[in-house]
Design a protein around this nucleic acid. Structure first.
Length: 194
DNA sequence: GGGGAGATTATCT
DNA sequence: GATAATCTCCCCG
């Protein structure tokens, strides 16, 4: 559907930090397996922690595609991580979901049967949803993806991003601090409501 | 339940 | 040749 693609391009054609905040509460499914986004991080082209920092490379090329493009990369040679592209060079890393759909499929794919950790982390959620390089550079508006915004008015906080060594001062991680399905808790001090 | 080591490989310098 | 947007397991208590 052309209207759907246009809606999604519009949704992601915005400031990457605003989109990262806005994505909390949205529904994300792959082949009908997925859940509610509860944790994200923003990455920008002028951000030393971003894959797009030194311009397009074979790996980061999808980050310079149309808003709403899916960017998948291999992390630590072991895990897949999934991002949604915003404006060129900008993308939001999806770090955790609250599982709602296809939980039995997730349990099958995940070696560790801890329900709380099915989608609690960027590597875990791609494993649970069956995301790999095959999904790289494809539009979020097309199958097998399903994306539905669901704005969360309050209760979202910001904090420093996880697992990076550069630009650690930026509070570009967003999430629902009370959820038990986060990749890691938000610390008491520092972060603030957004 | 918390800290630390090791896994494992594409990517870029 | 070093690094990396991570995860799991093992040890300790």
């Amino acid at each position: 559907m052309a209207a759907k693609r246009e809606f999604i391009e519009n949704y992601f054609n915005d400031d990457v930090v605003a989109v990262a905040r806005r994505l909390i509460g949205a529904q994300f499914l792959v082949n009908h397996v997925g859940g509610t986004i509860i944790e994200t991080e923003a990455y920008a082209p002028d951000d030393p922690a971003s894959h797009s920092f030194r311009g397009p490379t074979p790996r980061s090329r999808p980050m310079f595609g149309a808003p709403g493009t899916v960017y998948v990369y291999r992390s630590y040679g072991v895990h897949w991580c999934v991002n949604f592209v915003c404006r060129p060079g900008n993308a939001v890393l999806i770090r955790a979901l609250f599982p709602t759909d296809g939980i039995e499929h997730m349990i099958e794919r995940r070696a560790v049967p801890d329900r709380r950790k099915l989608c609690a982390g960027p590597g875990r959620l791609t494993q649970a949803l069956g995301i790999d390089l095959e999904h790289n550079e494809r539009p979020l508006s097309d199958l097998p993806f399903d994306f539905a915004p669901a704005p969360v008015e309050s209760g979202v906080i910001a904090g420093p991003r996880i697992g990076i060594t550069k630009a650690t001062d930026l509070a570009w991680r967003f999430g629902l601090p009370d959820s038990k399905y986060l990749s890691r808790p938000f610390t008491k001090n520092g972060p603030s409501a957004v």
